Simulated scan of single mutants.
Amino acid sequence: MPETESARRTPTPSIRVATLADDTALARLDRDTWSPRHAVTPLPEPPYEPYFDVTHRPDEVLVAEDSGGFGGSEGGAICGYVRLVRPTPLACNAHVLQINGLAVAESARGTGLGRLLLRAAGEEAARRGARRLTLRVLSHNAPARALYASEGFVVEGVLPGEFFLGGEYVDDVLMGRSLTEE
């Protein structure tokens, strides 16, 4: 019996706003996806801190929840997240939101989930009234930079040698995109 197109499609995860109940799963995902390619903080060690605290709130995080079979994870499991924050507390900057964290579980890499989360972040930022979406990425993280560029982010600045990581100086690349232009 020939395989139908719907049977070949990869299940799509649902994207939703995080809740406090997601804390343990998000903290685990953060630890599991830690890499010197993107992290400027040391690898977390026990005892592990909770994901949510006074500066990391559930309403800032969109989670990708597996609807069953996506990327090889179990249905209901969190397989990725993106965090949206205001870059400053200034009223004159309230029209800008910043991606301040994006993670995709190893089992869901290569499935388009990072792109799906970026698009959801753009939609959510626009829904919240933002006119611009920005992010920061380390210069040596070529895969992330390519993904961001393919989604319309452009380099708006570079802070040369901003971080000393793994024995080398790494640039901090500032990228952004308009949410109001076609």
Rank of each mutant, 00 (worst) to 15 (best):
M1N: 00
S6M: 04
A7D: 15
A7H: 03
A7W: 01
R9Q: 03
T10D: 05
P11R: 00
S14W: 00
R16Y: 06
R16Q: 08
R16N: 00
V17K: 12
A18H: 08
A21Q: 13
A21F: 07
A21S: 12
D22R: 02
L26V: 04
A27V: 08
R31I: 10
T33Q: 05
T33I: 01
T33V: 07
S35H: 00
S35A: 05
A39V: 02
A39T: 03
T41M: 09
T41F: 14
L43E: 15
P44F: 05
E45R: 15
P47T: 07
Y51L: 00
F52H: 00
T55M: 09
H56V: 13
R57S: 12
P58T: 03
E60S: 10
G71W: 03
G71C: 02
S73R: 11
E74R: 09
G76Y: 08
G76M: 08
I78H: 11
Y81Q: 12
R83V: 09
R83P: 00
L84D: 11
V85W: 07
V85Q: 10
R86W: 09
R86I: 06
R86E: 14
L90N: 08
L90C: 08
L90G: 08
C92S: 12
Q98P: 00
I99T: 09
A103V: 01
V104Y: 09
A105V: 06
A108I: 07
G110E: 00
L113S: 04
L113T: 01
L116C: 02
L117I: 10
L117Q: 06
L118W: 10
G122W: 05
E123Q: 07
A126V: 03
R127I: 05
R131N: 11
R131I: 07
R131G: 10
R131L: 14
L135T: 14
L135H: 12
L135D: 12
L138Y: 13
S139E: 14
H140F: 11
N141H: 09
N141G: 07
A142S: 14
A144D: 10
A144T: 08
R145T: 06
L147Q: 10
L147Y: 13
E151G: 03
E151P: 09
E156Y: 00
E156G: 06
V158I: 14
V158K: 06
P160N: 01
G161R: 15
G161L: 01
G161W: 05
F163E: 12
F163C: 09
V170N: 06
D171A: 04
L174Y: 14
M175F: 14
M175E: 07
M175P: 14
M175Y: 11
L179S: 13
T180P: 03
E181F: 04
E182G: 13
